[in-house]
């Protein structure tokens, strides 16, 4: 399992066998490798605590702020090593993370939130207006709420605001962490539609961490399944979606009806041992 087996020959982002340790003692990622091709949507799947968020933060280098450290491996973006860059430098190169839980600036208006996204760009006034219009084109809802304080908008609007803010930085790639968290299924669908739209029309690549495996696989081209800080399975979204194990453990579908939780656990433990 290495970057050479990845879906494209020269991936936009290549994560090679990284290990992440928090607080010098807690080993969270134990050798994760993955690749995101230019223009791709890649899903990072797995249960709570599998290491999805840590992987994204290792790429965006937000780990430093949480006393995490990439101790082994390498991360390449467009063929250049980026693991030692500051988050600001990464944003300037085109990698922006949309964090889990939205993290809008609660006391700023929606429009001000969007404007902060262009901080690294140093745009002129008219360029800023164009950039705003571009975001409003994809998220008309945000235009209606542009003057509202972000803290008082709904979860879906905040998610849109967070993604819109990231787009303002003109990224080549967005690291999107749990966009479906806490949102109604309809809104989730709407947001994934926009993600797909951005992918197709703006050529933004996505690395997407999701617990909602079903939705994520429907919109992604390729997927990795993380368990306990390791990649245990990878494949095209289609292959993963039809894989019996994935169906059973992540989609809650099994070929011979539902298995009892007890069976699943022992089976799962064995699988992990083999992995």
């Amino acid at each position: 399992m290495s970057a050479t087996e990845s879906p494209a020959s020269t991936p936009l982002l290549a994560v090679n066998n990284i290990e992440v340790i928090y607080d010098h003692v807690i080993l969270v990622l134990k050798g994760v490798s993955l690749a995101v091709p230019e223009g791709g949507i890649v899903a990072l799947l797995g249960a709570n605590g599998a290491g999805k968020t840590t992987t994204l933060k290792a790429v965006s280098n937000l780990l430093g702020a949480e006393r995490g450290d990439v101790t082994k491996g390498a991360i390449h973006f467009r063929g250049e090593r980026v693991d030692q860059l500051t988050p600001a430098e990464l944003v300037r190169r085109g990698v922006v993370q949309v964090m889990e839980g939205r993290h809008c600036f609660a006391h700023l208006s929606i429009e001000e939130n969007l404007l902060t996204g262009a901080y690294t760009q140093a745009l002129s006034r008219s360029e800023l207006r164009d950039a705003l219009e571009r975001v409003y084109h994809y998220f008309p809802r945000l235009k209606e709420r542009r003057a509202s304080q972000a803290g008082y908008t709904s979860g879906g609007e905040q998610q849109m605001c967070a993604i819109g803010r990231a787009i303002m930085a003109r990224p080549a790639m967005i690291l999107l962490d749990e966009p479906s968290m806490g949102l109604a299924p309809q809104i989730v669908e709407q947001i994934f539609e926009i993600v797909k739209d951005l992918n197709v029309r703006e050529r933004i690549s996505f690395l997407l961490a999701e617990q909602n495996t079903m939705v994520a696989l429907r919109y992604a081209d390729f997927g990795y399944i993380l368990e306990n800080g390791r990649v245990v399975m990878e494949g095209s979204a289609q292959a993963l979606g039809s894989n019996e194990d994935v169906k059973e453990f992540y989609l809650g579908l099994a070929s011979e009806g539902r298995k009892s939780f007890r069976d699943a656990r022992s089976y799962r433990r064995r699988k992990r041992w083999l992995a």
């Binding site: 600001a88 300037r92 993290h103 609660a106 006391h107 700023l108």
Partner: peptide, 23 residues
């Protein structure tokens, strides 16, 4: 101002400010 807005953003949420590239 751009910097003023960034200042308020940082005041609201350090992590988020960092994530969109405000140093």
């Amino acid at each position: 101002t751009r910097v003023g807005r960034a200042l308020r953003a940082v005041a609201d949420d350090h992590q988020a400010a960092l994530s969109i590239g405000i140093p």
